[in-house]
Amino acid sequence: MMPNPSTPLLRVRDLSVEFKMSNSKGWPWQKPDVVHAVNGVSFDIHAGKCLGVVGESGCGKSTLIRAVAGLVPMAAGQIEFDGKTVNTAKKSDVLNLRRSVQMIFQDPVASLNPRMTVFQIVEEPSRAFFPKRSAQEHRERVMSLLDRVGIPRRNANRYPHEFSGGQCQRVGIARALAAEPRVLLCDEPVSALDVSIQAQIVNLLRELQREMDLTLIFVAHDLGIVRHISDDVLVMYLGGMMEYGPAESVVKSPSHPYSQALLSAVPVADPRVEVVPQILDGDLPSPLDLPIGCLFETRCPKAQNICRIERPASRKIGDAQVFCSQL
């Protein structure tokens, strides 16, 4: 079946994720506290595109992609992959979905099993998802993946601790590709790496994306890198959407007061450019007790009364969706 170019490969609607806190000091009849980690996030990604998700730590960006990967349960909302609704999918489809959506993690060393060789690490998903292949086929597949990500074949029998961070991240990418995914979820894949190595990994991801027609969700707090790799950008704050649109317009001319503050704070590697950060007062509110109105209301320089009462709906500004009632 030919994919319809106008339907997105991945469609997420009103996705929410909640975590119930253990009720250790309360009474048994009290309701446990609930952390609202992701609140009503919607986006579409077309095949072969990259969505960048940015926001400060604790804004729910990692939880969001974990929910897409099926690693944490959704509290509400709907995910459609390739036209099928994941919530109601049959078991066989779910397995296929799991295979099609693979993840690359932030800490390259910790995300590899220290007691497995690189060969075993990359072979595991291949064996799990393609049990009918012969050992020889698995072997060839692993070796060609290692070639592709730039790990010399002679190092295939080494253990993760013998590699540097950048090389471990290459192994992590090879492992994700071994499942032959269509979507790669990248959870801060380069933030633990040095600048010169970061660029190597980002370039590798871009090449792979082009070659294999992969769809990426790239979570990062480094806006420069997100701008570099993404077609669309989603700005999150306190689990909710602030602004969502083409990277060009969101990064270059952000409309939401939060996006503006976030971008103004990015340091520029040029001493002639004077960066004047808009400094936000205070800290993030607790995700246990969200503001009733706009999530950003407590720190927003433009907040009015209406912002404190009503959660703003999406508005179209240029090509971007902006969640602010003061624009």
């Binding site: 970061q198 871009r206 480094d222 420069g224 701008r227």
Partner: peptide, 12 residues
Amino acid sequence: AVPNIQDAVGDL
């Protein structure tokens, strides 16, 4: 190697 936020197109 530092990605530039202002004009970032092409490979790093």
